[in-house]
Design a protein around this nucleic acid. Sequence first.
RNA 1: GCCGCUUUAGCUCAGCUGGUAGAGCACCUCAUUCGUAAUGAGGGGGUCACAGGUUCGAGUCCUGUAAGCGGCACCA
Length: 659
Amino acid sequence: MIELVFPDGSKREFESGATGRDVAASISKSLEKRSVLVKLDGALLDLDRPLPKGGAFELLTRDSPAALETIRHDASHVMAEAVQELFPGTQVTIGPAIEDGFYYDFARSEPFSLDDLPKIEQRMREIVDRDEKISREVWAREAAIEHFKSIGEDYKAEIVADLPEGDEISVYRQGAWKDLCLGPHLPSTKFVGKAFKLTKLAGAYWRGDHRNAQLQRIYGTAWASDADLEAYLLRIEEAEKRDHRRIGATMDLFHIQEEGKGMIFWHPKGWTLYRTLQNYVRRRMEAEGYVEVKTPQVLDYSLWEQSGHAQKFGANMFVCETDEGEKLALKPMNCPGHLQIFNHGQRSYRELPMRMAEFDGLHRYESSGSLHGLLRVRGLAQDDAHIFCREDQIEAESKAFVELLQVIYRDLDVELDSVKLALRPDLRFGDDEIWTIAEDTLERAANAAGVKVERLENEGAFYGPKLEFHLRDAIGRTWQCGTLQLDYVLPERMDASYIAEDGQKHRPVMLHRAILGSLERFLGVLIEHYSGAFPLWLAPVQVVVATITSDADEYALKAVDVLRKAGLRVESDLRNEKINYKVREHSLAKAPVIAVVGRREAELGQVALRRFGSTGQEVVSLLEAANMLALEAVPPDLAVRATGDQRSPHGVVGAMEAG
RNA sequence: GCCGCUUUAGCUCAGCUGGUAGAGCACCUCAUUCGUAAUGAGGGGGUCACAGGUUCGAGUCCUGUAAGCGGCACCA
């Protein structure tokens, strides 16, 4: 007998060997009909699988949020069956559920074309209509390998062969079709429903390794209802409208052209945005005791060999040779440069921790296929800094960093998607004992700052583990922005030292850290996050002074002048157009404030302010507007001082500096 | 780098089975001076990504190259 505990807390005993369906049937016929899965002690099981033990028990219907992942997984199987019916000879490999949908990787010599997708969808709908029963079988390992080999499914045979000894080999039969799969699955194909759509074709390597064969991946999305599917498609469409590349073009922020792929041409407005953000972070860092430096763009290749970057990333560096036979490289990062400054002269323990920052441009030869708007580029700048410190300072410095990062992300209104702790990679310097200490220290510091981390095996840098801070773009892709990397190796390789209390030379530890990461990437995410409607302090153009008739031209120019002198970024629109036209145009351009002036305002020395997103007007005197808007436009790090009591004289000056 | 797709005016896109290029917006000119989301008329603008090929004839068909897009791999 097994004892099941139901969600309402009641308990009942069942014969061992009872299935979820038996339990459902014992409660009511309709519940049996509606149930699709079982949740036992948190794990999902097939409805028709004998319950292996007692425990917390729940029957899931198709509408249950927990069933959605299984609907998607089953959709991938239905797709695989459809593909094998339509394209005999295609091998199946793996096909999991993913966020918002599913994919399946196929091996086939002939490529799929986009025209195939509707045909596959059609066949999928037929398979759903056939209502094929899905059942689980457990096979012997050798028999499974033999079977899959005999039907030409070499990839499946390989998967079986690689399953750990002792694992059950489960095969799911779905009508006449079958697939090796861990499960669970729905009782039959009709439960998959028809709220799915195949969305894209892609290449993907077998087992994620580029040395392996390339498979063809078909992606799809699947939902419990048509309404959910439509809502999802609409969400994607909306998200595409805020794509930073599109907004970058319409707001005239930047462009990229053929001759400089992966390189950004920042236009005046985009560069204003860039500088505003950069100045903000710079101030935040200065307030935390960072000092800023500037190191050379081009350095001798031998320095990169000494640092170890040449060995690991040489293929990704821009290298040139001079007529005199020197081999030089464009810097892909600042750390070796910073070590040169640290090493210049003798350092004392009294100088530690030394927090050395730099915003200079970096160049990395990223593979052509990885380039992506502002989010992955070849020419970039980081809010980069290296903290040289003693081992006993690592934790406090790391914690302070994570706290600073949280302050900055809060000011910028971005939300962290996840924080990952990337652990030792195969290719690495340094011994394992140090790696263990380093990994644990980072995790402790992050936890101390109130951040939960997700451990990622094998993803660390070659010189140390790292904390990665991931942000999410408009359509749900995540991008690493902030990073904190602990490094015992580079100080060793570059022979950095300081004199400690004991009068002896000691090796400092180095923390590589960035909060925005690449300014380019961060701006890409930020543009999408705000959909171009930046808060006043960040907006490239903060106020547009628009005239109603040419009578007000002279006054409008005076208003522009007054607002600019208050530190605001102002443009004028004196064109011979109707005010409706101007309001529409600047609203579409997401100008935070439109200051309308007509004959009335000119006579009374006023402006009529219209805020983005509102249709109301606020008529105030020009001076009042200048003071009020200047105060509102103060960057968040200066706002406390500007509105606060003491040390406030820098408030408004700060706002001007940010312009 | 790999797989698939795309590339026509500044932008968004139309152009059927090959017959010598079109719209809207933007831009320029003129008229209009109009109080909070598009005033009207006129005008200029294209080596149809680039290089080959097939053809009497190529934006259209074929091949190659480049860039872009979607993934994969990579990401100090």
